[in-house]
């Protein structure tokens, strides 16, 4: 189910002296099945934006269409919207409250008024999707490690069977191991379910490896919206707004600046390695030719 944002703006504290514009005329199309990175530093409006997607926040002006329907129209089923556009907040483990993991994951589908059997089936599937082992199902969620808790929380949203999954900073506060595990898991479940995934982050390094499209937010507006490679070309502009391209970009750029005939398009180690190898091959071919 595609989501369309048409000139969406959001002003906090409108009609007061302290009005702050968090979103300015944002227009976006989010088609089915895309893997999107939404990047911006703190205060860029990215968190505000995602809360519009499932109707938790109401646009001050502009419209949002889910599957062609205006979500602010009278009689639009917000509950349905929230189950279809699953939003995982930052530090989602802070929302856990049940006595055991399984019961907590059941909370979402239960709210949808499904049968007990269906609720449990969905909870089970969701926990499998995030890769949590059965042994943890009946433990208290508070006894789990940070990374595991976060998986449980993500499962809590997945159990509603959303078609769009939005994750706000899913790696915040995790160590590198936990971070890689969560990101790999998300990428795997994207492949398995084919759902649309929007990854909100302030780290280019995190998303570069996974997503096919990057939306860069700055001061409430969309600054870039393109394939990662294209976006990272603007690494100087990105730096000015407190973001950075993946470190590899800088390495390659530095080589290029010093007269090395390499392309600066590589955004991952793997690609950079290939680029340098092929450059060496070219060099040695020239060398041998001489």
């Amino acid at each position: 189910m595609p989501i369309i944002l048409d000139k969406v703006s959001h002003v906090y504290g409108q009609d007061t002296a302290m009005a702050v514009t968090a979103l300015k005329n944002v227009s976006l199309v989010i088609p089915d099945g895309q893997f999107i990175g939404l990047i911006g530093h703190t205060g860029s409006g990215k968190s505000t934006l995602v809360q519009h997607l499932n109707g938790l926040m109401k646009a001050t002006s502009g419209s949002i269409y889910f599957n062609g329907e205006d979500i602010d129209a009278e009689g639009f089923d917000k509950k349905m919207l929230r189950s279809k556009v699953g939003l995982v907040f930052q530090y989602p483990e802070h929302q856990l409250f049940e006595t055991d993991v399984f019961a907590d994951v059941c909370f979402g589908p239960k709210n949808l008024g499904l049968s007990k059997k269906e609720v449990e089936l969905r909870a089970y599937e969701a926990l499998k999707l995030v890769g949590l082992e059965d042994a943890y199902f009946y433990q208290s969620p508070f006894d789990l490690s940070g990374g595991q808790k976060r998986r449980v929380a993500i499962a809590g949203v997945l159990a509603m069977k959303p078609e769009v999954l939005v994750l706000d900073e899913p790696t915040a506060g995790l160590d590198p191991k936990g971070r890689d595990e969560i990101l790999d898991q998300i990428s795997r479940l994207k492949k398995e379910t084919g759902m649309t995934v929007i990854l909100v982050s302030h780290s280019m390094d995190d998303v570069a490896k996974y997503v096919e499209r990057i939306i860069v937010m700055n001061k409430g507006s969309v600054m870039y919206d393109d394939a990662p490679r294209e976006v990272f070309r603007h690494y100087q502009e990105l730096e000015q707004i407190g973001l950075a391209a993946p470190q590899v970009t800088y390495i390659m750029k530095d080589l290029q600046d010093h007269g090395y005939d390499v392309s600066d398009e590589a955004t991952t180690i793997e690609k950079a390695k290939e680029e340098i190898k092929s450059w060496f091959a070219r060099l040695s071919a020239v060398g041998k030719g001489r």
């Binding site: 809360q51 499932n54 938790l56 509950k79 929230r82 189950s83 699953g86 939003l87 995982v88 907040f89 989602p92 802070h94 929302q95 909370f107 979402g108 709210n111 949808l112 809590g156 949203v157 509603m160």
Partner: peptide, 10 residues
């Protein structure tokens, strides 16, 4: 925040 997170879970 927690309220919103739970609202997101319907």
């Amino acid at each position: 925040k927690i309220m919103k997170a739970q609202l997101a879970r319907c």
